[in-house]
């Protein structure tokens, strides 16, 4: 049996270690704490957004071991063995990730609230597309991008420019690799 965390009916906390953006972070938290709340409320990593808090909007999208997941439906305590990447960990020092740059270039947002989730989702999406469906690796159709990004809702309706930004980032990525 691995870790056991027994809270008192009141608000007992447990010791949890998370590896976020390459850094180990030690926390004392209530076992009920979601990964999203741990990031935002305890680690001051407020880039990941709380939209619906019930797994329906995608604003809280982060990467766990390279996979895009929803931080609002993840328990922090259950991810102590994992490599967690948030929007704050995407840029390489002062240089924006190509997807971040593409969102700026293509004006892929309006209010910006869903943007960190959109970007984290889009980065993982292009990696999935390259890995899983070789025949589609050249260029994703608009329809495919929209389907693969359907877990990220934009209340402003900035979808056309979000799709454009993703296509742009895909092109930049290809040029960068060649």
């Amino acid at each position: 049996m691995g870790q056991i965390a027994t809270p008192n009916p009141t608000s007992a906390t447990v010791s949890v270690t998370l590896r976020i953006n390459g850094e180990e972070r030690n926390l004392q938290l209530d076992p009920r704490t979601t990964l999203l709340d741990a990031l935002r409320e305890q680690l001051a990593l407020s880039g990941s957004k709380k939209g619906c808090d019930q797994g329906q909007c995608g604003a809280c999208t982060v990467h766990i071991n390279g996979q895009r997941v929803l931080a609002c439906l993840s328990l922090a305590i259950a991810h102590q063995h994992d490599e967690i990447t948030t929007i704050e960990g995407l840029a390489d020092g002062g240089e924006l990730h190509p997807m971040q740059a593409a969102f700026i270039e293509c004006d892929g947002f309006q209010c910006g609230y869903c943007t960190p989730g959109q970007i984290m989702s889009a980065v993982a999406m292009l990696e999935e597309a390259a890995r899983q469906i070789p025949s589609h690796a050249d260029e994703l159709s608009l329809e495919e991008i929209r389907e693969r990004m359907s877990g990220n809702i934009c209340r402003c309706g900035a979808y056309p420019n979000i799709v454009e930004a993703i296509r742009h980032a895909q092109t930049i990525g290809k040029k960068g690799r060649s």
Binding site: M1, G2, Q3, I4, A5, P7, D30, P31, L75, I77
Partner: peptide, 19 residues
């Protein structure tokens, strides 16, 4: 959310016992 005890199971028998 109501408080709960969290147990990380490392083998099936232990998981079933804990549950």
């Amino acid at each position: 959310m109501h408080p709960f005890e969290y147990v990380e199971a490392t083998d099936p028998a232990a998981a079933i016992h804990a549950a």
